[in-house]
Computed example of a mutant assay.
Amino acid sequence: MNQGYDYQSFGISRESLASYTAKTFGWMFLGLFVTFAASIAMYWTGAYYYVLATFNGLLPIVLGVAEIAVVLYLSARLHKLSITAARGLFFLYALLNAVTFSSIFLLYNVSSLVFVFGMTSVYFGVMALYGYMTKADLSRIRPVLLFGLVALIALALLSLFIPGLDTGICLIGVVIFVAFTAYDTQKIRQNYAYFQGNPELLQKASIVSALQLYLDFINLFLYLLRLFNRRD
């Protein structure tokens, strides 16, 4: 698909699929590091309480709208954004998510957080490896995964009126996001094949894939965490 683009003008060279995949996961892990490091800093310094007081109870809504806006803007303007802008939006999302994540230290014991983080890493790693190695076309399960997300949202709303659904919701969430991990990992290969003739779009597609994997890890972590008891 080479369309006459000069790879050297973008500061990159033609790279292998393995190298491209490794760089994509590198961006994802860097985003996770920013989120967890910033959330710990906010908790230790008490900055979370200041932000909470500033928005006077509207913090979850403000953060939710801001995070969705960043994701939609990045996805919609992939072809127009510069590589630097795409990376900047990715890390902006990671920082916004840190505000939400800082609250988990108020709800869960550190030992539970460490244990669940390790468990999430194992599940995520196994499914990412499967997605990278399998010859099966995982794009066929995309409609099922999207339906699962809609069902998950519907169940979450239903749980506001019917108690006792949380455990089932968490188990379904875990299944959905381990499947998404494999699907999104395989999608890296598809992006590599599709965009390899355009080095700029190839690098921006890597950021989008990193964001998708970041969201898979974060959601898997949160659903696993909710299966454990909250701090008394």
Rank of each mutant, 00 (worst) to 15 (best):
A136D: 00
T45A: 12
Y20R: 05
I61L: 15
A86L: 03
L78I: 13
M42D: 02
A18N: 14
Y48R: 14
I83C: 02
A98C: 02
F124T: 07
Y130I: 10
F55M: 11
R77H: 15
T35S: 13
Y108A: 10
M119T: 14
Y130L: 10
T120R: 09
A76N: 14
F91M: 09
E67Y: 00
S82G: 14
T120C: 12
S19G: 10
V122S: 09
G125N: 06
L63R: 11
F10P: 00
T84M: 10
Y93P: 03
Y20L: 07
S82V: 07
F117K: 12
M28V: 06
G46A: 07
V65D: 09
Y73I: 13
R14C: 01
L52M: 13
N56Y: 11
G46W: 01
L78P: 00
S39T: 08
T54P: 00
A85G: 02
L52Q: 14
S9A: 15
Y43R: 13
T45I: 01
L17A: 08
V110T: 14
S121P: 02
S103T: 09
L106H: 09
A69Y: 06
F36C: 04
M42N: 06
R77F: 15
G31T: 03
S103Y: 14
A22P: 04
F29G: 02
A22Q: 05
L107N: 10
V126L: 15
F36A: 05
Y49H: 11
R87T: 07
V51R: 00
T120Q: 05
H79Q: 13
V51I: 15
T45K: 03
Y108Q: 07
F115N: 10
I68C: 06
F101E: 03
Y20P: 01
Y49Q: 13
G64T: 09
G131L: 06
A69C: 10
Y43N: 14
T35P: 04
A18H: 10
Y123G: 14
M133T: 08
F101C: 01
V114P: 07
V116W: 07
